[in-house]
Amino acid sequence: MTYRNERGLTWGLVTPALLLLVLFNVFPLLYNLALSFTNAELVGDGARFVGGANYARVFSDPLYSGALRRTALFVCCAVGLELVLGFAFALALKREFRGKALVLTLALVPMMLSPAVMGLYWGLILNGNYGVLNQVLGELGLAQPQWLTDRGLKFWSILLIDVWMWTPFMALVSLAGLQSIPPHIYEAAEIDRAGAWTVFRRITLPLVAPLLGLAVLLRATDALKQFDLVMATTGPNDGATQTLSTLLYQVVFRDGKVGLGSAYACVVLVVVIALATVFTRYLDRLKGAEAR
């Protein structure tokens, strides 16, 4: 094949993917950027250029700063809890016992279900009046909190659902990491009289850290766009549970303020890119340490 033909083939193969990328990623991104400088609305036309007015509003808007704070809290608490609980589960699952395969299969179930459906189910379970949880609590003579309507409680209820859904994921990733550590290293440590804590801190943790880092990155980016659970339990316009994603939805699709929503989205995008960069740097560094 001649050089010319080969070049032609290269472009021929790449172009469809490139076109799709431009059509569905690059164009919307640029269009969104353009919209963020206008006062475009969902209905009606005649969008006017308004300069940085939308951005000025984003940074002064208490709704936005509240959603940002809430989302950050959600990411930190949910991913942190999932990591700690998941790792603890993995340590328990590491040894062999009867029914281990069944436990592992069951652990996969929450991950396999749609978050929106899970949100609806948990909505039923946690319902303050007829929810299963409160009925059980009532039978036991305990308090029956309004899980999804109490202002101070509903954010944590949603967080709990997320932890329930994603702890098994962390457990499985941790387990894979733990099982990849050769047992003879532990035997060497046993002969070297290392204490349990030292073994954990100096041997186990450093060896599973790269994998855990990756799992945290995946979970953090996912938690950052938390939408389904909030929508299914409290709806998008609840001051106590509004995340960045649901705020965006509210602004654009309920209030119809496309220009303002686009400005929100642009700011969120910058935050996400910054976070992703930090994580990929971290992973690169781990990879580098491995290769050197």
Partner: peptide
């Protein structure tokens, strides 16, 4: 007793010095 394994069994995340000192720092 000391045991030298066929597959070396060093602690991969530690330096050589830390590996050598590890058994001496045991509780």
């Amino acid at each position: 007793i000391a045991y030298v394994f066929q597959n070396f069994s060093l602690y991969p995340s530690m330096t050589v010095r830390e590996n050598l000192a590890f058994p001496l720092r045991a509780p």
